[in-house]
Design a binder for these strands. Structure first.
Ligand SMILES: NC(=O)c1ccc[n+]([C@@H]2O[C@H](COP(=O)([O-])OP(=O)(O)OC[C@H]3O[C@@H](n4cnc5c(N)ncnc54)[C@H](O)[C@@H]3O)[C@@H](O)[C@H]2O)c1
Ligand SMILES: NC(=O)c1ccc[n+]([C@@H]2O[C@H](COP(=O)([O-])OP(=O)(O)OC[C@H]3O[C@@H](n4cnc5c(N)ncnc54)[C@H](O)[C@@H]3O)[C@@H](O)[C@H]2O)c1
Lengths: 207, 207
DNA sequence: TTAACACTGTTATTTTTTTCACAGATATTT
DNA sequence: AAATATCTGTGAAAAAAATAACAGTGTTAA
């Protein structure tokens, strides 16, 4: 499966899997494209096309085998041995993220948290140890952490990003309001709830 | 400006404004398209096209007037009198969101928070009063709140959404892991960090 | 005063993403 | 056993988004 998938498809595959895991829990083993579509508020064709792109095939009368589909999606989007994730900045947001992950068993494991506040360092949050930033480079290298979430106040975000990159991180999700500059070999994704809210507000206003 | 703007343009306009406010704070009054582009890691053409779509025009030698551009963007994406926002579920995530907004002065005002936990009800968080869910309908109607953020545990999300919709809410941002069903006159935006992380992981893996 | 330059605004083109439309398959009904 | 209904898979078309290409214009420099 080396040919590259459309960006949007990758995003939806992750969503499909989440929905399918849920669905499986309700005891059903087969699902139709239009049922998946309903779960995510998209169209059935879209679902079928995405599934086509990853090379899976459903059965005519029963639709897709939920377990198989979950597995195939995993084969596509997960790394074989999983990837390790670090969270930098254990404030409200950092803790919310760590708490959110702690239930899930995914191939993405948050294995370390970092903070500079002595009150937070050397404690455990949602089962994950919090280290002082001084340790950042060593731990990221030794553990082989490839992805980091930045949830520190804006004024520190740039420095944190630099340190992460020096430590060899490959992907960054930035929640701080400070847009970052990263070299092109680092995949950067920024997220801002204000932007999201303003977009919603715009479309609400128009209606 | 009644013609509808592309979805993505709306999103970027919000980002431009954020970046421009920042930039203005650094004392500069004019900016070139390629400078804006650098701030957001996109191309200058993209910036010029977006600005073209909102009908603003820069000057040849100096680029865009930062203040004017900020104002124009406001005219486009803000409602005249602002829109009111509520946050339901004042856990780590809800508090992170409220804290994040408390600094900003935008046309979007978080004016109420809701929770069911008696320890949280009737307290103030980031300057905003937290009410019991029982009050939800009344307050949303009376205050004219049009947008809500759902950050309650998944099992309650559906019920909360129903109540919000009955109360007349127009837009919902759902952070809970439970996909919601809303009537078509309600604009729904879901967000899941697992999806975002899995996407980053996928692209990191490929590199 | 002319040439080189550095911008914007916009048309045209390309790329990406979504949707349409229908062939093929199989179960169900008549 | 024929007609009907209901799925999937996919080529073709359409729509949306991004990029390229360049005309127009003031500015500076020669
Ligand atoms: N993008 C969004 O939607 C969004 C939403 C909420 C918050 N935020 C942003 O996320 C960040 C965190 O928000 P929060 O509510 O958790 O804030 P917070 O103040 O509760 O937490 C910040 C944490 O970062 C730690 N910290 C400070 N400097 C650090 C450094 N150099 N290295 C490591 N840790 C450091 C602090 O000790 C603290 O624990 C802020 O920048 C905030 O603006 C973004
Ligand atoms: N989408 C994401 O990226 C993301 C990230 C983190 C957390 N989450 C989700 O967001 C939600 C909140 O996360 P958190 O870390 O803040 O959890 P939390 O447990 O800290 O907070 C949940 C809050 O909701 C309140 N609550 C419970 N039932 C309620 C109800 N019916 N009405 C109003 N309030 C109610 C609780 O009293 C609590 O204050 C969870 O569903 C979590 O899974 C999503």
């Amino acid at each position: 499966m080396t040919k590259k998938l459309p960006d949007k498809t990758v995003e939806r595959l992750s969503q499909y899997r989440r929905a399918l895991l849920n669905y499986l829990a309700s005891g059903k083993h087969h699902i139709f494209s239009h049922e998946i579509a309903n779960l995510l508020h998209i169209t059935a064709v879209q679902v079928r096309r995405d599934i086509m792109l990853i090379g899976y095939t459903g059965t005519l009368r029963q639709g897709y085998d939920v377990k198989e589909l979950i597995d195939i999606i995993g084969k596509i989007i997960d790394s074989r041995d999983g990837q390790k994730v670090a969270v930098v900045g254990i404030g409200n947001l950092g803790r919310a993220i760590m708490g959110y992950f702690s239930g899930k068993r995914t191939k993405l494991n948050i294995v370390a948290a970092f903070d500079t506040n002595p009150e937070k360092v050397n404690k455990i949050y949602a089962g994950i140890p919090c280290y002082h930033n001084e340790m950042l480079k060593d731990i990221i290298k030794n553990e082989g952490i490839s992805i980091a979430v930045i949830s520190v106040p804006g004024e520190y975000a740039e420095k944190v990003a630099e340190d992460l990159i020096l430590a060899g991180i490959k992907g960054i999700i930035n929640f701080s309001p400070k847009p970052l500059n990263v070299p092109s070999h680092v995949y950067l994704q920024e997220f801002d709830i204000v932007t999201m809210l303003e977009k919603v507000a715009y479309f609400v206003k128009k209606a």
